[in-house]
Nucleic acid binder design. Sequence first.
DNA 1: TTGCACAATGGCAACGTTAACATTTGGTCG
DNA 2: CGACCAAATGTTAACGTTGCCATTGTGCAA
Lengths: 334, 334
Amino acid sequence: MAAVKKSVSVKDVARLAGVSEQTVSRTVHDSPSVRPETKERVRAAMRELGYRPNFAGRSLRRGRFKTVGVAMFNITGTGNLDRMEGFAAAADKHGYAITLTKVDGHPYTLESASSRMSALPVDGMVVIMNRMPADFGTFEPLPGMQTVLVTMLEHPLCSTVDNDQFDCSRQVVEYLLGRGHKTVHFISCPERSLSGMRREEGWRETLRAHGIEPPQLVRGDWTAQSGYAAGQALADDPTCTAIYASNDAMAYGCIRGLESRGKHVPEDVSVVGVDDSLGDIVPDCRLTTVRFDNKRVGMWAVDKIAGAEGVEPGVEHMLFPGVLVEGDTVRDWR
Amino acid sequence: MAAVKKSVSVKDVARLAGVSEQTVSRTVHDSPSVRPETKERVRAAMRELGYRPNFAGRSLRRGRFKTVGVAMFNITGTGNLDRMEGFAAAADKHGYAITLTKVDGHPYTLESASSRMSALPVDGMVVIMNRMPADFGTFEPLPGMQTVLVTMLEHPLCSTVDNDQFDCSRQVVEYLLGRGHKTVHFISCPERSLSGMRREEGWRETLRAHGIEPPQLVRGDWTAQSGYAAGQALADDPTCTAIYASNDAMAYGCIRGLESRGKHVPEDVSVVGVDDSLGDIVPDCRLTTVRFDNKRVGMWAVDKIAGAEGVEPGVEHMLFPGVLVEGDTVRDWR
DNA sequence: TTGCACAATGGCAACGTTAACATTTGGTCG
DNA sequence: CGACCAAATGTTAACGTTGCCATTGTGCAA
């Protein structure tokens, strides 16, 4: 039955329309040097045969794919969905497509991401770095393959873009100090997280810049449970009037932990989180937090590649600041 | 300076290694009919020139792209990250890549997703349907383009796969009835959600199958706030001992709403959610919920396309059941 | 009438790869 | 020693598209 459906080429269309292949091509590209009635005839033939331009032939001829590759070591991760939204939106804007690749190979290296991409039809690539790759310092992007890293670390050969985690902490700490708190306690995250460590640095250095010696931090593990424990531990510390948690889940856990020890938020203790991820999940708490625009980060990365269009655009480093969103979990002591 | 870097082709490698292009090709594919020392010579030449096989030339020759396209109307959505994880994992397994496309065109139709894909280098496509597309009944997939829809509705021409939302409600309702509850109240979601409506049907029909007339449902909007309001409303209903909420955020909101009215969970009222999305975000509550394996759904979709490898595989419909995860929010009344 | 400009279209080649077939080489066996 | 075989390598053509140049046709000024 179902005849083997060989793909329809310009040749087939040309034959049916009684024109040359070249005229078909010109019609596809809507060249002004084809007579309208000829165009219409060709278009009719295309419709009849169900012609669709062949991507491979076209790319081979043109030498470009109009596609950006995205390499991820872990697909599941905070903000990845928003970043992808950004990738897709920017790609769309430039008429590009996005090719997604999971690099689950054991070596967590840029090299492995790069070689994975090299066989795919992409003009440039974006790598989402969550941790520190072993070869960050020595990595060289493939020749002719514009490479953008999503990370806060600056790379000498690749453009980079990310949220500004240092500035995020600066904002939070200065916001709390500005509300009359004498110091800010910190619930951190596991040490292998790049962005988490940068938040920690920001907290520490901002306090020092204000002449305050940072108190002992409490190390968490991103979960609300660890925040809960941290909240209980900090409830007994009389100097603790303000807590900055490295993400919203820990901040929320912390609030509940404080409450379990009879401390009220924000009356007794102020709490600030990061990520604005609680959103519609928690009913009774408008957490003061920092919102990042991950979509914008994603768009920037793809814009950098797709927007270049052949020109050699040079290495650039971009950090987008987050926005502090005021909720109901901070008390003004002034 | 930077000389125009024309891409290195088999021809260049062949010349340097002093062999024919075919031998280079055979070496790339590790054919046994090339002498090991010849292979080594060719490999050395490839390394020296930095040869990378050209995707376009290869696909043109082979007629296949080894790529699956994924069309999404909304990238941000519950479970999409896990589904993508599944897409990527299955693609990887088959040596395929994933091309992601956001269909943000105004018409919410399969046709628009399909035509968007037709110009891209893909062998098949997956469409993630959140709502009901206008042309669901009349849509015909592109010839030669295997199309899989992620939806619970069965389509005559396309394979479909999704979580079994009806069965999910059945499990929850029978679980609660089995614990001695006389009926199960329901917090629904907005009516435009396909999966939500199917959950609603499952709840209603399972109750009826057990000879119980479903009580008036409370319509929510996915947010914890709406769950909170629902909890408060249901707290005054003496017949209400078990509540099934259409997602975890509403379930959690509901619990807090009940508590605000002096009802305790699970002592007074049992609450069950869906999605297992609270995870590490909430510290004090192990919610009984239903966990779906979205990764598996994603893998199935890509397997269906990439696994076929040329053979015409026929239309198939797949629903994966969720797993009820017991937490601490259900009381046994028996 | 010729020459010329311009519009419309056609022919050819090349992009990089590889399947199919062709050729060469070295060795084995009757 | 010639016929034959297998292993190793080479040659050709084709996949679909499009840039470049050539060709044809048409109208208009010289």
